[in-house]
Design a protein around this nucleic acid. Structure first.
Lengths: 334, 334
DNA sequence: CTGAAAGCGCTTACAG
DNA sequence: CTGAAAGCGCTTACAG
């Protein structure tokens, strides 16, 4: 069974490969008559263009790389699903495909062989940027257009889409303060993520604007996993006293925190109020249901994808960013 | 800024492109001396091989296509996350990358233009196969190796990995019958998925082996979304009486069902017992926590990926399948 | 141990 | 409106 190429089609119709290519792409007008013959031959021969060859010749892959979290985090976080859905929907509409990369970065290992194995992409979407993110550095070195989902170090020169987490955490902490809370534990994410910085900043502003002091001891940095939220918070309960509220980096950590509280028979919200961020399905379902900061994750994903396509297609050259508003959804945990 | 190709490197070192290629791939021994010079030049020139060109020349892409659900479903289902994590982990280890496709099939539209836009892949992983699945048909036509996650129509000639759902639903329904339930509603998935068939079969067997009759009226087919589970079950409560238990296609539907029950003030498990399938995070978190059939979703994903790599690399030629055992995790809802 | 060259299957200026 | 041909940047038999 001989391989069917554009040549095969051209030969059968009696035209050049160029004509077949143009007829199929529509990049040049080909007479209706010839076009019909070509389409018929394509059908009969069951011709399928070799996309790799097309990509090489046109230096365009119609593919976008999505750099996501470690799989461990992906397993627990609906936030990823919502971002992903937004990204997928937009890219589908714009005819782009998606290459998904999980984060397998070994923090202890300085060389990152994987980075070079990447398939060719027209652009990249980078979730959860670290401070000094090696993925971003790699993408920049490869001269690939990219959009950060979250906030990168170099805000001036980057395209990015993020929720206004500083405002969000300001509002959330402010809300707690107005309710009379004075000592609020921040179960933040790992300090190496820029997202953690913003949460801390918003929180600090709220204390400040209310004329209150707070201590850095009240801020804990944990991995974004339920088990870690649970484990660390159990220790926290022993070490820190008198706190009356907790605000977490995300919903997953909140679930762990609530488990620790339940185990210690500490009533929520009677003794301790809890606020999470993400407003994913689990916040509604949990008992008690969890007050959560909605970040419009689907919209973050879709806006980022739209922006990336514009950047790839040079419809935008000047670095720009979109900041999406958050809003607090009150539930039983506060 | 001139583009750096393998030629650039070869010229600087004073060898042929072939030698550079071999030195880099290790497919032929190149003297240590020359190799060192090449590596130095690669470093200095910041040479990055064009993967598209490599793919074309070697007719190998090191990429696997993952055909997933519609994004609507992805948003709500941790089951997807767990499968995905298993797939990603194995493929990463085996040096393959992943192209993610959501299902945008328009059921009402007979031509599927998207299918032809696919990027070149070495193999495909197909989740949630439909009966007469067009994705599978397409992949077969393209002569691409594939593994089904779930059970395909043509079991004889396919590679696939699935949970033993028939046994799982048999066990679950049997468990309910032993507890005295006689009329159990099956909130099944859409009838066009093979997964729904298997659930129904296991359930039927359990009735049969206990010498009981059941009615097809007790089986409902719904989309795999919380809202649909809720909407349809609310009607069901009105239409069907005397049932004492519900078993659902997945966790998401169960959440909808439980919401409908709560709204009607029907106590769970006092009046109605509920079992779901998936055993994702939400079953633990929900109040009441949900008895659920664990399908080892991470393992399904990882086994499927392993199998696919073997098929791609011709380590397996004869169609084969892996059936993974399920187990029922008892919680408050029963 | 290394080189010269064909080939992968497309696209796209260049010509007419 | 169409063709002949160069080119995309690699890999891999074929030779020596």
């Amino acid at each position: 069974m001989p391989k069917v190429t554009i040549e095969t089609v051209a030969n059968r119709v009696g035209v050049s490969a160029a004509t077949v290519s143009y007829a199929l792409s529509g990049k040049r007008k080909i007479s209706q008559e010839v076009t019909d013959k070509i389409l018929k031959a394509v059908e009969e021969l069951d011709y399928r263009p070799n996309i790799t060859a097309r990509n090489l010749a046109s230096s365009k892959t119609w593919t976008v790389g999505l750099y996501a979290s470690p799989t461990q985090n992906i397993r627990e976080d609906y936030f990823f699903n919502n971002i992903l859905a937004g990204v997928l929907d937009v890219l589908h509409e714009k005819k782009y495909q998606i290459h998904l990369y999980a984060d397998y970065l070994d923090e202890n290992n300085k060389d990152h062989p994987d980075l070079n194995l990447t398939q060719p992409i027209d652009g990249a979407l980078i979730m959860n940027p670290r401070i000094n993110d090696v993925y971003i550095q790699h993408i920049i070195q490869c001269k690939i257009p990219y959009v950060v989902i979250g906030t990168p170090d170099d805000r001036e020169n980057s395209f990015y889409v993020d929720a206004d987490l500083t405002a969000g955490y300001y509002a959330a902490v402010n809300y707690l303060i107005k309710k009379g809370h004075r000592k609020i534990i921040l179960m933040n994410g790992s300090a190496k993520y820029t997202q953690s910085e913003k949460r801390e900043a918003g929180s600090a502003m709220a204390y400040h604007d209310n004329g209150l002091n707070y201590s850095n001891d009240w801020i804990l940095n944990v991995q974004m996993l339920e088990e870690e939220g649970y484990r660390v918070f159990k220790q926290t309960i022993e070490k820190i006293s008198d706190f009356t509220a907790v605000i977490t980096f995300n919903d997953t950590i909140a679930v762990g925190v609530l488990r620790a509280l339940k185990e210690k028979n500490i009533h929520v919200p009677g003794k301790v109020a809890v606020i999470s961020a993400g407003n994913t399905m689990i916040t509604r379902i949990h008992a008690p249901s969890i007050t959560s900061l909605d970040m419009n994750s689907y919209e973050i994903g879709s806006k980022a994808a739209e922006l990336l396509v514009d950047v790839i297609e040079k419809k935008r050259i000047q670095p720009s960013h979109t900041i999406i508003q958050t809003h607090l959804v009150e539930r039983e945990s506060t």
